[in-house]
Amino acid sequence: MQIDFHHAVTYIVARLADFSHEEAQIVAYSAQYVDDATNDGYIEFDTGALYSRIASAHKMLDYKNFNDLANHHAWIPFHFLPGNNGLPAGQGDDLGFIQRIICKPNSYVARDMVAECIQRKTDRNALHRLGITMHVYADTWAHQGFVGVEDAINRASQLTSKHAEHTSDSMGDSIKDYFSHLFDHAKGEFVAGALPLGHGAVLSYPDRPYLNWAYTNGAGEVVNRDNPKDFLEAADHMCIAMKSFRAGDASLSATGLTPEDKDKIDKLIRGTINEDGDIRHATWLKAIRKAHFSFGKIDLTYVPKGLNSWKHAALGTTEAKDTGNEDFIYNPNFLDSDWKKFHDALQMHRLYVVQELLPKYGICAA
């Protein structure tokens, strides 16, 4: 998924789950920042203090950057959560490793991850952790069928697509149903052959909300995908998760989206047709600005790096990429900054997934 879903839809669902604007902003910013936290290593301050952070992404959408793609340390805990073949803990020991780490939508593994996040709701960075968890949870729908390691299962061929059927978007602009051109198979197969990691071979197709598409996977199976259906289902389950978070209910027994809210989100998913995630994001922000949803008019923004970003507030830098040689001026508010709370939550999430959650399912991951 891309910024239109991870930021805008996460914000909308959080508000519909009765989070305040301020709370929903933190959850939504954190959900999207998982894709933008690409720097790792130590932060050095002029006082001599140090802070260690990890990266949760390596610009996966830059499909030509094989060096970054090869560094897949972040893929399993943050983008391709293993699904244990859809089985509960204690089952699946007879399956191979790759089969067990294939991402599955709303798996037992994923629901256990959400439940643990709810149990930590009193932590000082609980909302940041919730945003990270919602990113990973949503990606189990978008990234289903793929694994976060280099493996032939990720190879894809015969990739085709059709835009989701729709007659008009929720903003009242008429559009036509139309078929996209057949994908350049040579390009997709080149990416898959060079580096079969994640869903690189099918490029951004899993992440475009409006798309219906199909491909043949590395096992020779024809896979049909209905992104609008999957993305709406993800939003509904995120609503259940966030309502359960507010209630402190780790059993996830809350209700999801109302029929009216679900219809509005569905129409925006199907009607916002553009390959560029930033352009789709702008459409969602426009809908929020025009009070399209029941929580009213909000001027929502997202600044990942530079002036007015969480990183700028915490470290005083406007640079998007760190060199590793910076000597940052220590701000007494650093320890309570959203940026640090987010990075603390990243490390807590990864530690839990790798050292507790996956071993519970008999899965060993780096």
Rank of each mutant, 00 (worst) to 15 (best):
Q2P: 05
V9M: 13
H349P: 04
T122M: 05
L159K: 07
A74W: 13
E233V: 12
K176Q: 15
Q32H: 09
W141A: 00
G277R: 03
I3M: 10
Y29S: 07
F342S: 06
R350H: 09
V9G: 03
N65L: 06
S174V: 15
D151C: 00
L95M: 04
I273G: 02
P82T: 01
H185M: 14
N212P: 06
R350C: 06
P82R: 00
Q91D: 15
I265L: 10
V109D: 04
L182Y: 13
Q32S: 12
P332Y: 06
A152R: 03
G131M: 04
G193P: 02
L130V: 04
Q144H: 06
L252C: 09
K64S: 13
G48T: 02
S180Y: 14
Y29A: 11
Q32F: 13
D276R: 12
A28M: 04
F295S: 01
A314H: 02
K264R: 12
A214H: 12
R225E: 01
N217T: 05
N212A: 09
L346D: 05
W339L: 00
Y63R: 09
H6S: 12
A156M: 07
E189D: 08
L182E: 14
T318Y: 07
P88E: 05
R280L: 06
V353C: 00
A194P: 04
D4Q: 10
L81M: 01
N224S: 13
L232N: 07
K229F: 15
L300A: 06
Q158P: 06
M1C: 13
D93L: 13
S107Y: 02
E22T: 09
H128I: 12
Q25K: 14
I101S: 02
S56R: 03
F19E: 09
I3Q: 13
N67M: 14
M238Y: 05
P209T: 08
D344N: 09
N85T: 08
I298R: 11
Y205N: 14
I273Y: 02
A110H: 02
Q99M: 13
Y51P: 09
A194M: 13
I240W: 07
D68V: 10
N85I: 06
D93R: 14
N65A: 11
F80V: 02
A142T: 06
K187Q: 15
I273S: 03
A201Q: 02
A192W: 01
G271A: 10
F295E: 09
G200D: 08
N125F: 08
S20E: 07
I54M: 12
L81C: 00
A287K: 08
K321G: 05
L232W: 10
P82K: 00
H181L: 14
H6W: 02
K305S: 03
T167N: 11
E22G: 09
L203Q: 15
L315Y: 08
